[in-house]
């Protein structure tokens, strides 16, 4: 079975994010970048399935700047077989990425698409769902387990208040949650090997996809700083403050 994994390059989760001075977004220049943690889990899952003999080929795909090649190399060092970068300097939004993915799926015919449930930069949690919708495929989001068997797969989803086990028909799209697995440390020999694995760079135009943003960002601001607390005399004063100052009741 062939698996396609979508990955995204994001600001390293260990780096403190700063808003750009002009409020147009967050600073990414000269900041340490990394593979989105949920995407890393998605790659790990594909690699484990390959090691278990279920998967024959792992293709990783990303959309973005030329530097996103590093993210693909990381995925290939983990065990993916080849990568495709759809290169654009547009700040792509989920729908555009989903359309790109659809175009690549049409060319590559994977039986399973694994993506992170969301990226830690803008927390959209949309791309996987959109890919499934555009393809007309079943989707299982926020999964903590996936076991393909023949023309279907059994998946466990993390839902409010518990776990939901479903059977979905393949081909399908699944999105990885935190507990699906714990990604491995990349080994040095595999970093070296990843350099030699095939990495194709194409433009969105070549896929016939228009990646122009449909949404406009008006302003990005840091959350307001929390002020110091005050000590109140009694419940009456608290109710009064909640009513008249905070205006929440």
């Amino acid at each position: 079975m062939k698996v396609l994994v979508g990955v995204k390059r994001v600001v390293d989760p260990n780096v403190k994010v700063r808003v750009k001075a002009d409020g147009s977004g967050v600073e990414t220049a000269n900041i340490k970048m990394a593979i989105n943690p949920f995407c890393e889990i998605a790659v790990e899952q594909a690699v484990r399935m390959k090691e278990a003999g279920i998967v024959t080929e792992i293709l990783v795909v990303t959309v973005g700047l030329p530097q996103c090649q590093e993210t693909l190399r990381t995925a290939m060092a983990m065990g993916a077989d080849r990568g495709i970068l759809v290169e654009t300097d547009v700040d792509v939004q989920p729908l555009a990425v989903a359309k790109v993915m659809k175009a690549i799926i049409a060319k590559e015919n994977p039986q399973l698409v694994i993506m992170g449930k969301q990226a830690v930069d803008n927390d959209c949690n949309q791309t996987g769902q959109m890919v499934a919708a555009l393809m007309g495929w079943p989707q299982a989001t926020h999964i903590s387990k996936v076991e393909p068997a023949g023309d279907h797969a059994e998946v466990t989803r993390e839902v409010d208040g518990g776990l939901e086990t479903l059977t979905i028909k393949l081909p399908a799209v699944v999105t990885a949650d935190l507990r699906l697995n714990e990604p491995r440390y990349v080994t040095l020999p595999n970093i070296m090997k990843a350099k030699k694995k095939p990495l194709e760079v194409i433009k969105p135009d070549a896929l016939g996809v228009d990646v122009t943003p449909r949404l406009t960002t008006l302003k990005v601001v840091e959350p307001a700083k929390r002020g110091s607390g005050v000590k109140l005399a009694d419940v009456a004063e608290l109710v009064n403050k909640l009513k008249n100052e905070a205006k929440v009741i």
């Binding site: 590093e70 990381t74 440390y185 990349v186 040095l188 970093i191 070296m192 990843a194």
Partner: peptide
Amino acid sequence: VTADLVEAVLGE
């Protein structure tokens, strides 16, 4: 030993 290889090795 290209710069991007060094970067990948040091990063990991």
